[in-house]
């Protein structure tokens, strides 16, 4: 197998809070192959977005920093790259779309200008060429009447349309990786499906790898080949989507899957109501501890879970899990 497009190794990101330095990402490793789509799943505050920002080199200034580990993109370690180099990569080789289409576009510039500006910055296109290209991109993300809408301002568009504009902007330079941070969370269900279709089609056409961040298991199944379940800044389980949904090893993954109402076809006697994973994600203060951070909410907890952090164990198929009782589940 050739080198993966993106290889994250033992990544540790520290956040400086008022009275402490806490690892919001702790020893995370994963790989992304060219043209592959991978999903990050987990509750809010598990470090999914932090990972994305770290790849982009956009961790909050002075608060967050990569403490150790590496992010190798195309043979180049991004954690060591200069700000100028990162600026060349951002929006060009790796681009990102965000959760909030309503506020992610600048309200005082036309959408055409906001798309054209990326092309001018990275592809060296002139004013006119960039604008024509912006029209074509709007058409490609299926905004009707693109020729006219290109000079609209964001406030003249709906949420779904704005997210399409964001996608057009992100794909303008045909990036190798597209990071989509909960791209449909703020949208209507019907619009969500359209956006997923669009992303899938564009991926087929352009061969862009996609990193999806979501807490929607349905979206994962629709979009990705592999998934990474994150819990409290650590990778809990990594593997093929079908395999994990079929046979989740980590009790947290099991809980997450059980929460999805429509994954089990029939509503049976023992599964008639909505399920939940009881409890909440531990506070940041707990993050560095040498124990299983899921222990407080875990139905199969034993003493060792509270004494030592579980190692990551990988089976031959590449399905890995960080749980003292991961074997028991299989």
């Amino acid at each position: 197998m050739s080198d993966p497009l993106l290889k994250v190794q033992n990544l540790r990101i520290e956040l400086t809070t008022r009275d402490d330095v806490v690892p919001v990402i702790d020893d995370l490793s994963f790989e992304l192959a060219a043209q592959e789509s991978i999903s990050f799943v987990g509750e809010s505050g598990c470090g999914k977005s932090m990972t994305a920002l770290a790849i982009m080199g956009l961790l909050p200034e002075k608060i967050g920093r990569v403490a150790s580990g590496s992010i190798i993109f195309d043979g180049e370690d991004l954690t060591q790259a200069s700000e100028d180099r990162l600026r060349e990569i951002r929006g060009n080789d790796i681009s990102m779309i965000f959760q909030e289409p309503m506020t992610s576009l600048n309200p005082v510039y036309t959408v055409g200008e906001q798309i054209a500006e990326v092309l001018r910055a990275h592809q060296g296109l002139g004013q006119q060429a960039a604008w024509t290209m912006a029209e074509e991109l709007l058409d490609a993300v299926r905004i009707p009447n693109a020729k006219r809408r290109v000079s609209d301002y964001p406030f003249q568009m709906s949420g779904g349309q704005r997210q399409r504009v964001m996608i057009a902007m992100a794909l303008a330079c045909k990036p190798k990786i597209l990071i989509a941070d909960e791209p449909t969370t703020a949208l209507d269900v019907t619009v969500q499906a359209q956006i997923f279709d669009l992303l899938n089609d564009l991926r087929r056409q352009t061969g862009t790898s996609i990193i999806m961040i979501t807490h929607d298991m349905g979206a994962v199944a629709e979009m990705s080949e592999r998934m990474i379940v994150m819990y409290a800044g650590r990778g809990a389980e990594i593997g093929g989507v079908d395999e994990i949904i079929e046979k989740p090893l980590h009790p947290y993954t099991q809980g997450l899957i059980a929460c999805v109402p429509h994954i089990l076809a029939t509503v049976s006697a023992e599964r008639e109501r909505l399920l939940e994973v009881p409890g909440i994600v531990p506070s940041l203060r707990e993050f560095g501890k040498d124990q299983c951070l899921f222990a407080s909410r875990c139905p199969v907890r034993t003493d060792i879970c509270l004494q030592k952090r579980p190692p990551i164990e990988t089976d031959p198929s590449g399905h890995s899990v960080a749980c003292w009782h991961g074997k028991d589940a299989s």
């Binding site: 951002r90 929006g91 681009s95 965000f98 506020t103 910055a121 902007m169």
Partner: peptide
Amino acid sequence: GADYIRTAKAKGLSNRQ
């Protein structure tokens, strides 16, 4: 602190822009 500033940074624009 606005979202669209994050977007602008994610586009790889220079600080000045």
